[in-house]
Design a protein around this nucleic acid. Structure first.
Lengths: 173, 173
DNA sequence: GATATTTGATATGGTCAATAACAATTATCA
DNA sequence: TGATAATTGTTATTGACCATATCAAATATC
């Protein structure tokens, strides 16, 4: 479906290349017709997702947390004592790609790897005190500046209906 | 929020590293708690989007069309006579990245670049006969195998409500 | 007519997803 | 018990996208 994250700085000047096409009143910047595209689930889903992530990043700018990093912190907090493989696979992250991500979070002292005494192959993941504090602030920012916009936009009831439908798609499609 | 397209081949064996934690009945593969994650808009949105794209690719396997390619064909069909910049920017694709994409579609004889006589800088985009035929088949596949699953899953009314909410997010968030 | 802008294109760098392979450790089981 | 298989974290590497700078040709502007 295509939809990139570009900042859309383009100065919106269509129409020249087809001057006079279909006897247009001349000078009117004819907008493209999306047509069936606006009814395509994937297209609309992708555009919405990009907008949401974009907004998330803005809201979290002060904490420098990406959606992925936020999800890791949330999951580690909710499931203390789990190892890298468990956390990663739950989030759909492949183990190799999770390494650099953890390196980042650990270097910022947000979480820590602890060698398990039960299985010395694995690293138990825990949040540091700073990690807990940052996550607390992050949750507030998300609730206040991010998720709140959904309620403004859709209303509480519709917001929940949307999340339920998306979950259903994510789990059963 | 993280969520990759991995095939999820992992054999689901958590629990060992925290044997005996919280007096578990021993041997039960304790699943991780998603917690607040399942209420995060971005997380659910991303997971749903990945599932939908995945399904789209399966449905279009016989035509070898990606979501992005399908959206280009749809838009070119609906807006014949537009140039690369117009089509690309409408889809949120940056012009440099659109070149290779068009090279691909053109090499498969699905669309063609035509030098505009009005403005010899620009390339007018049109679907070839083969492109039109392929798009027609693609639409049928999408309607039959892809979008239809949404109705099965949500019902017609909810499906439309979902699309409306996603469009609203995409446009107003 | 000189200068600026636009269009398609190339080159390039960054991020993210995916696979293969490896050492250390643990599990399996003959 | 001991040989073999499997698992964990890791590295290396590849490919798909996204983004920026830059360029030549063509056009617009003044």
């Amino acid at each position: 479906m295509t939809v990139s994250k570009s900042a859309e700085k383009s100065s919106e000047k269509p129409g020249e290349a087809t001057k006079g096409r279909k006897d247009a009143p001349e000078g009117l910047p004819e907008a493209l017709q999306l047509g069936e595209l606006s009814e395509q689930l994937g297209y609309v889903l992708k555009r919405a997702q990009l907008k949401v992530f974009e907004n998330f990043l803005r809201c979290m700018a002060s904490l420098q947390l990406t959606p992925a990093q936020f999800s890791v912190l949330l999951l580690v907090e909710k499931n203390p004592g789990r190892n890298q493989t468990e956390i990663a696979s739950t989030l759909g992250i492949l183990r190799p790609n999770f390494v650099a991500m953890l390196d980042n979070l650990e270097s910022r002292d947000l979480c820590a790897r602890i060698r398990s005494t039960n299985d010395r192959r694995s690293h138990i993941l825990v949040l540091t005190d700073k990690g807990k504090a940052v996550l607390t602030r992050a949750k507030k920012l998300v609730a206040t500046k991010h998720e709140s916009r959904l309620n403004e936009l859709l209303g509480q009831a519709n917001r929940q209906a949307l999340l339920d439908m998306l979950s259903k798609i994510a789990n059963e499609f």
